[in-house]
Design a binder for these strands. Sequence first.
DNA 1: TTCATTTCTTCACAAATGTGAATGAAAGTA
DNA 2: TACTTTCATTCACATTTGTGAAGAAATGAA
Lengths: 198, 198
Amino acid sequence: MNQFVEFISQFISLSNEDTIALENVLSNKSYKAGDKIVQEGSICNSILFTVSGKSRSYFVNHEGQEFTWNFHFNDADSKFENYFLVDYYSFLRQTPSHLTIEALEDIEAITLSYTNIQKIVSKSINLEKVASIMSATAYENVHKRAFTLLTSNAKERYLQLLKDEPYLLNKFQHYLIASYLGVAPQSLSRLRKEISKP
Amino acid sequence: MNQFVEFISQFISLSNEDTIALENVLSNKSYKAGDKIVQEGSICNSILFTVSGKSRSYFVNHEGQEFTWNFHFNDADSKFENYFLVDYYSFLRQTPSHLTIEALEDIEAITLSYTNIQKIVSKSINLEKVASIMSATAYENVHKRAFTLLTSNAKERYLQLLKDEPYLLNKFQHYLIASYLGVAPQSLSRLRKEISKP
DNA sequence: TTCATTTCTTCACAAATGTGAATGAAAGTA
DNA sequence: TACTTTCATTCACATTTGTGAAGAAATGAA
């Protein structure tokens, strides 16, 4: 079964017709390591669901500095939000993306376009929930990110990462983790040293 | 006309039946200054639309420190997200709220409950868009907040506030603005001094 | 393997931000 | 009015975080 359909089925039970309707609008896409999957400034007109390969999304500030927004992969460690390659903000409003998504490895993905999602949503009340599931997932993710950034300092954010998603440290380079936490790589090193031997 | 219906009408055109259906599930509610409109830990089961009065939403971290999430009011300066009194995260999933919303003045509001929103959504395809409009609005707001917190320092955040929503400085006390920016009140004072006379 | 490249760590110092105390201004109350 | 309370500002100092340079460690290529 299609992995995307499988994902959706965790939340709602799809009829046979719904499943077929959904599968019909999905297609496969692959990227090479280094490819830009979503490009800042262009409109994000599809949602990609990661089947294999690692990627990361990031913002660039006015000084050209990169800030990792999230890591994306699909394995035993991954959470829902990690599957999706999309600037949800750009996708919802069909406005230029602020986010860039870059393939760190070769990527296999399943794609669902903006126009296709509209088509299936208008066909079935049940499928319409697909959109709201993804919307809620995206919202929860960004909400948690904003909360953490507002309420805790670098050390607390690193400790929280150690607690909630320690596997990231083995999967991604530390300078990427640092930009995910919003600190300089050297500061992350210092925190790691400090925390490992108190 | 009901201010909430008016708000929704900016985005979608409602039929007479839709308008009546919507108005039927809305009710008025008022709070006194100091009241907790949304209480951390309890499930947020309605969306409140501010008609008059100022309030603020905030998180409390593990040390008991308060961090202002947003300011809420309805006047010429206000933006969409400022109208709504809701922990959207809690509302969507019907889970305990992380946010507290506190009335800073007496509040008049229009309320739409979670169960009522389900009712009207299942009745009309058009009304169903109400939910997605609010969802998108909430998402954009939190997305911008997370982006700013991740990519800029205290000074840049204050300069952005001066540019985007300078009226907040006249409406709310500076120690609240400081906790909105994620800095100590003294640090905000220092920044203001530094920026006013370069 | 060896060499080149990238990443991680460490250090010293600079810059940014937090903290507690003190002061004065502003607002509210009797 | 005087008194109290709250808030904004200022200061000195502490702590956190950033920065550039250097070297160590890891990784990848030949």
